[in-house]
Nucleic acid binder design. Sequence first.
DNA 1: ATATCTGCAAAGACTTTGCATGAGA
DNA 2: TCTCATGCAAAGTCTTTGCAGATAT
Lengths: 154, 154
Amino acid sequence: MRHKTGWWHRRLRGRGYRITVPRQIILEVLSRTSRHLSAEDIYIEVHRIYPQVGLTTVYRTLELLMRMGLIYKFDFGDGRARYELAEGPQGKLHHHHLICTGCGRVVDYTDFIEEEVDLLQKTEKGLSRKYNFKIQSHLIQFYGLCAECRKREE
Amino acid sequence: MRHKTGWWHRRLRGRGYRITVPRQIILEVLSRTSRHLSAEDIYIEVHRIYPQVGLTTVYRTLELLMRMGLIYKFDFGDGRARYELAEGPQGKLHHHHLICTGCGRVVDYTDFIEEEVDLLQKTEKGLSRKYNFKIQSHLIQFYGLCAECRKREE
DNA sequence: ATATCTGCAAAGACTTTGCATGAGA
DNA sequence: TCTCATGCAAAGTCTTTGCAGATAT
């Protein structure tokens, strides 16, 4: 175990999960990047640090971390899931995604989030009541063409 | 050609696409349902009406209709895409989805949409300017537990 | 010590592609 | 007639599963 104690240890240990090298490295990779990594992207990065890790373990770890709420899984429409650290002490700010339908590029934006909060809370409250759902989370994405793709379309 | 002229004829013909039996039936199935059908669901329904159709054609037709903006494609997180008619004369009202993370049930809601419009327009305008994107569409989904799944969790 | 975790290989699920035949305009 | 569209089979991707060996506690 070459890596120093992380903030997630208590979360895992608390539920009886073990702190293993692959888990630590996967979380490390996720916290170091600002990109939107697919399982294979993560596998490649992890593999660089610790070559004996397998893709299966990456998938299983991501599944676990997701169930624990440590990471989020996104679908940007290109047929593979993307993962990022949940917001929090080590995670990023709450943000949404702006996706280019031309080239698949994804931009994180944190603008207008404040204005959203009001509306979202109101909506969540209303939906909870009307449909008897206990709302846990939301997903907001915008789709469009980035500058380069727009040029190319001409 | 057993089916009467549909509103989509001009859209297809206008771009040089042919009006074929499978295309008509697929659109018919989509306009008759209020469910969120997967490609295979659609295949099954279409097959019932016109058994010689293949799943491949369903996929190809859905792809075409999507490119033309006649239908939308959604990902509710269960590994298969769902399709529905775009809003419009024959389509449904603009709505968003409320997804149960327990059983996968999806509820369409049209509440609070009006309040959203303001915010969305403002956000779209801001994002366009700041990131130089030409915004085309947005996706909003809420996730939570439906009443039954909440009961089951206790 | 022992229950959990991992890696490999194989299987599974959904979707796409190649190609010869069939059908719309 | 002559493209465009279809069906079948095969292939392609991403993801999950089974199982024996390895590892954390």
